[in-house]
Design a protein around this nucleic acid. Structure first.
Length: 490
RNA sequence: CGGGGUGUAGCGUAGCCCGGUUAUCGCGCCACGUUUGGGACGUGGAGGCCGCAGGUUCGAAUCCUGCCACCCCGACCA
């Protein structure tokens, strides 16, 4: 069989890029650092959106939409926030073009904006400016809003899905009457993300806190979920921030309490992006292409007809269509690929490359014997089963594949979390094995920075479930209460 | 923004060092025929501002200069 991709061991970056492009997910657009998401890739993103949106609504949130452009002055209100984003903002300075003497198009210098507009790198500022108008009383709280949007960050180096100049995401922004409630919200949302990652994407994640230096600009606490990719590098898959009263104070958002006092509200923000697509790809895919977990796959099952004559096609189609109806009635997303422009072998390869979890082939022999051939993407195994038990089998199989993918990824991660007791061991494991390194750290930004400089590894998180354990920092030997997770990261 | 690399048909490429007919090959595309249970085969065909702009030369894909884009490694970051 013709190989679809470079093998992962040859060059992981190249393999990833080829996979994204060949599986028809996305491509470089030719516009600086921006990608085109192709229909198939977008269908997967839409599945993510649908499930996340449902989960947000189940936890009491509503969707809204705020402007793409943010006046520059809004940015000067929260100092640490602007420090975090100033270096990577696209700025709109003019509003008109004109023809020049040579018939070309130039920016009309007369059409300069009085105040520049920033293309949002995130929406905290404009949303908090709006919240000031929306919030007056404790009766207006909590305000639980999510926005699905695109944002732009002028990154130096970009990579399909993982770091593009423009990306799609959702950003939740909530306002609460009390600190406790806001903290609970931030924690709730990191749990929602973890639930989504593990149960829909079949991507095991570690929930934790970011260290001060890795925290979101303007946040008092950043919760995150960290996943481990097949090349041993970590990927931050989602974050949820407790913002304290920083934004409320910067944008003067106050409410009247029951007692009639004026107080600043407490805030959170949380987001996941198209980066999740990168996590999905790098967690499950193999050298035959993408592998999609059934809960997320736009098509869970594809039916490929096999035939020579028109009569055979008719006979096979009839069986296939009945099966489609039956599976759909049971909530299975199924596609019957009746194109006569491609041959079965070609289709088999295409759906393998695209990661469709279950493939059913029906040919004349099957029609005769009352069977179908059923193949699963995760193990690449095939079997013939009786027509009468197909839908039952498919439903069980989808469940099994979902579980299998999670288990596989989870075992891989388990094998790649290494506890180390010394800095030498730390460096050796990082070099030879990669993955997460669980180690004691003295809690200082200086040590964190030193490790980053010397090894390229960063503290991915302080796990929420870290056990209290007295130890000594691997670098300085100073006392430490618990282990943190280090890794090289995307 | 620093260091390295690459730009030749939709994709992948040969040719470049050492300038010289009509720019090589594979995949894909189109037509016809035979095929169709793991990317079919045959025959014929279409498709190129050789990244862009200058320069050197009788002559440039090839040499020189500038620019642009992309990739990899840093710094920055979801």
């Amino acid at each position: 069989m013709a190989k679809n991709l470079t093998t992962r061991s040859e060059d992981y970056s190249k393999w990833y890029n080829e996979l994204v492009i060949k599986a028809d997910l996305a491509e470089n657009s030719g516009v600086r650092g921006c990608m085109v998401i192709k229909p198939y890739g977008f269908a997967i993103w839409e599945r993510m959106q649908a499930e996340l949106d449902r989960m947000f609504k189940e936890t009491g949130h509503q969707n809204a939409y705020f402007p793409l452009f943010i006046p520059k002055s809004y940015f000067s209100k929260e100092a640490s926030h602007v420090d975090g984003f100033a270096k990577e903002c696209a700025v709109v300075t003019h509003y008109r073009l004109k023809n020049d003497e040579n018939g070309g198009i130039v920016v009309d210098e007369d059409a300069k904006l009085e105040e520049e507009l920033i293309v949002r790198p995130t929406s905290e500022t404009i949303i908090w400016d709006t919240y000031r108008k929306w919030i007056q009383s404790y009766r207006d709280l909590p305000l639980l809003i999510n926005q699905w949007a695109n944002v732009v960050r002028w990154e130096m180096r970009t990579r399909l899905f993982l770091r593009t100049a423009e990306f799609l995401w959702q950003e939740g922004h909530t306002a609460h009457a009390t600190e406790k409630e806001a903290l609970a919200e931030a924690e709730q949302m990191i749990n929602v993300y973890a639930d989504f990652a593990e149960n829909f994407m079949a991507v095991p994640v570690i929930k934790g806190f970011k260290t001060e230096s890795e925290r979101f600009a303007g946040a008092l606490e950043t919760y995150c979920i960290e996943a481990l990719m097949q090349d041993g590098k970590a990927l931050q898959a989602g974050t949820s921030h407790f913002l304290g009263q920083n934004f409320a104070k910067a944008f003067d958002v106050k409410f009247a309490t029951k007692e009639g006092k004026q107080e600043h509200v407490w805030a959170t923000s949380w987001g996941v992006s198209t980066r999740l697509m990168g996590a999905l790809i790098m967690t499950h895919s193999d050298d035959n292409g993408l592998v999609l977990p059934p809960n997320l796959a736009p098509d869970q099952v594809v039916i490929v007809p096999i035939y020579r004559s028109d009569e055979q096609f008719e006979a096979v189609s009839e069986v296939a269509k009945r099966l489609v109806t039956e599976l759909r009635s049971k909530g299975v997303r199924v596609k019957f690929d009746n194109r006569d422009t491609h041959k079965p072998g070609w289709k088999f390869n295409e759906y393998e490359l695209k990661g469709v979890p279950v493939r059913i082939a029906i040919g004349p022999k099957d029609v005769e014997k009352g069977t179908v051939e059923i193949a699963r993407r995760d193990t690449l195994s095939k079997e013939f089963i009786d027509m009468s038990s197909v839908s039952e089998k498919v439903i069980a199989l989808l469940d099994e594949i979902q579980t299998n993918l999670y288990t596989k990824a989870s075992n891989f991660r388990k094998e790649n979390i290494t506890s180390v007791e010394s800095y030498d061991e730390f460096k050796k494991v990082l070099e030879d094995k990669g993955g997460f390194i669980s180690a004691h750290w003295d809690g200082t930004p200086e040590t964190e920075e030193r490790i980053k400089k010397e090894t390229k590894a960063t503290i991915r998180c302080i796990p929420l479930d870290a056990v209290e354990e007295l130890g000594a920092c691997v670098v300085t030997g100073k006392p430490s209460q618990k282990r943190v997770l280090f890794a090289k990261a995307y």
